[in-house]
Design a protein around this nucleic acid. Sequence first.
DNA 1: TCAATATTTGACACAGTTGTTAAACAAATG
DNA 2: CATTTGTTTAACAACTGTGTCAAATATTGA
Lengths: 206, 206
Amino acid sequence: MILAEITTEERILEAAMKVFTRRGFAATRTEDIAKEAGINRTLLHYYFRDKQTIFNLIFETRFKEFFKGLFLIFEADNISLFDKIRRMVDHEITMLTKHPDLARFIITEVAHNPQLLIEYGTKLGMNPRVLKQSFEDLVAREVNDKTIKPIEGRQLLMNIMSLCIYPLVAKPIILTMMNVDERTFSQMMEQRKEEVSEFIINAIKK
Amino acid sequence: MILAEITTEERILEAAMKVFTRRGFAATRTEDIAKEAGINRTLLHYYFRDKQTIFNLIFETRFKEFFKGLFLIFEADNISLFDKIRRMVDHEITMLTKHPDLARFIITEVAHNPQLLIEYGTKLGMNPRVLKQSFEDLVAREVNDKTIKPIEGRQLLMNIMSLCIYPLVAKPIILTMMNVDERTFSQMMEQRKEEVSEFIINAIKK
DNA sequence: TCAATATTTGACACAGTTGTTAAACAAATG
DNA sequence: CATTTGTTTAACAACTGTGTCAAATATTGA
């Protein structure tokens, strides 16, 4: 086995990532993962105990992917609110465009099993309340200084997340309803990277 | 069987609605539906052929629930853009707050089987393109008249939908991440009915 | 009360999924 | 070449879920 090549173990994880993310835990068959990886089911158990074990590995990775960058921006200090918004929007849309099924996957799995959020959240050392608080404080300060219109930090945060995440979550619906192809959709998302930040800033600036 | 009482058939459909909406098709067991309805599995097959039949009935109902009101507003004539936005936002948030799992259900089922959207869309006589076009025309006119900042109709539409729908879709995540209880969440959604329209209008008005 | 209808029980066949095992085979590595 | 490691094949047991059926029982309406 040459080092530069990807190992079978990685191929399996890669395949599991695809299938689990597309179909979710319940609808995924281990056979589907094996087929996607180009191996058979026995080999899958040779490397990993069972379906649940693989899922946990995948979920941890994808969970991190979904939240990590965002929390880095939350933490970032000495950045103006508007710049923070610009960074968040750009990061979220860029990341989700690269992984179009990621948000839907995380949301539906957490909806089916809310415990996952607690478990992997703490496992990755996230402290939502502290980080969220820092953003809410930042917003409250700007409101107080009357540099932006009055708005609650958590409502603004929800708005930012909504505008970035929803289009990807609802992508299968949007493609049909708006009658656009994959290529056009990508262009629309590209366009949003700029426009959404300005949309938000226009909405709140005085 | 007294007429005023709900029939067993209705009890089953009611139960199926709850379970399917919460868990989706793949993760739902007919046993779960029977238990939720307080009857046994055999009776379920006595009234309905099979799981798929029940699912189709449920999906059609919920699909209509999700899209109907929105399309009515789309169609509505002689309404200013801003009023149309206000109506859409109010309707969407009100409807989704009443049915918190509805949006996630429709989105995930359509993501698993895009054909559903085509099938039930045409079945219910929706013509997305025509309706969407009327909205895009309205926006284009306002942009042309320079009464609002330049924005594509479809981007604006996506923004409106995002701001209304995402918070409900991501509710299980938001509850934990923002550390709020059901009651507080409801209040936040109530607040959004007013604030989101104004947020949008501020974002686009000149 | 009688007959029709609704509901439960228990059993069953069938299909699908999961996880395991033994044996054979292939590839790579010393 | 001999050995280890990776992989496939085939078969299997256990379990779960679906759909069906016959018989027994309960409920209702005529």
